[in-house]
Design a protein around this nucleic acid. Structure first.
Lengths: 131, 131
DNA sequence: ATAACAATTGAACAGTTGTGCAAGTGTTCA
DNA sequence: TGAACACTTGCACAACTGTTCAATTGTTAT
C-alpha cells in the first residue's frame, strides 16, 4: 500500500528559512571568534582560573605549570576577542574576565559539559555586579 | 642587600588559587570541545539556522548555498559534540538544536557579539523561557 | 529488482593554529 | 644609571582543521 505521504521535503517544509539575516552578519563572525578563542583546553582553564578572581601572568604560569611566554600568548588570543580585562598594578599586570557575558558563557558551557550542574559556587562571587 | 624577598606578587595576592580542581577535569575539556565546534563561522550559521526550527540537510545546503557533503561534514562536527539532534523522516534527516543549553550558548554569544541586544525574537519562540 | 534521491564517509590537500625559543618593552628599586 | 623583574612579541615548525571529491550507505518509488 503506497503511502502518499512525504515524497521528499514537502514544499511547506522548506519554509522561508532565508540565509541568516536574523542576526547582523558581523555578529555571527564575532561570536565564532569568541567561541574559537574559548575552544582550547589550556585557554579555557585560564578563563576558569580568572573566574575565581584577578590574577597576574606569573601567578597563572605557576598555577598551570607553564612558561610565562606561553601563558602570555594564550592571553593575547583571549584579549583579541575581548574576553579578558587588563590593568597594571606595579610590576604586575592583572587579568580578569571581561564582563558578565563571559562568565555566563563559561557557566553555561561547563553546565552543559557536566552531567549534573557543576559546583560553581566560587564563581558566583565574582559574577554579580556590572560596572 | 638580599632583602626580605618580594616574591613578586604580594603574598596575599597569590591566594589559594590551586590548579583548577574547581570543576571536574573532564568538564573543561568537553566544554572546550563544544566551544571549538561552535568556533567556526559556517558551523555557527548552521546552528542559528536550526535555532529557527528543524531542517533537513538539503534545506540547509540550499539556504547556505553549499554542497550537501560540506554541510554534512559540518553537522558531523556539531553532532560529535552533542550540539544537534537528529531524526529520520522518510528520505530526509531532520536536525535540530540538542537542548536548551545550546540555545543559551548561542543567545549569550550573539548578545556579547552585538552592540545592543540582538533581535532574537524568532529564537525565543522556539525555546527560551527565561531572560 | 533497479533507479533515483538523501545523506554520510574517507582521503588528500591547503590553510590555520598552538607552542617554544630568543629577543624586546616597560616598570620598579638600589 | 643600571640591574632585576614582569610581560610581550616575532618567528619557525609541528600539529590540527576545513573543504573538496569520489565512493558508499540507506531510503523510497517504479
Amino acid at each position: 500500500m503506497p503511502k502518499a505521504i512525504d515524497p521528499s521535503c514537502a514544499p511547506q517544509d522548506h519554509l522561508s528559512r532565508q540565509q541568516t539575516a536574523l542576526v547582523q552578519p558581523g555578529a555571527i563572525e564575532r561570536a565564532a571568534g569568541i567561541f574559537r578563542a574559548m575552544g582550547d583546553g589550556p585557554r579555557l582553564r585560564l578563563l576558569t582560573l580568572l573566574g575565581q578572581g584577578e590574577a597576574c601572568v606569573t601567578e597563572m604560569a605557576t598555577a598551570e605549570g607553564e612558561d610565562l611566554s606561553t601563558i602570555s600568548q594564550r592571553l593575547r588570543v583571549l584579549r583579541n576577542e575581548g574576553l579578558v580585562s587588563r590593568r597594571r598594578n606595579g610590576k604586575h599586570i592583572l587579568y580578569g574576565l571581561a564582563d558578565q557575558h563571559v562568565v555566563d558563557l563559561l557557566f553555561n558551557a561547563l553546565a552543559h559539559a557536566s552531567e549534573g550542574p557543576p559546583d560553581l559556587s566560587r564563581f558566583r562571587s565574582l559574577t554579580i555586579s556590572k560596572d
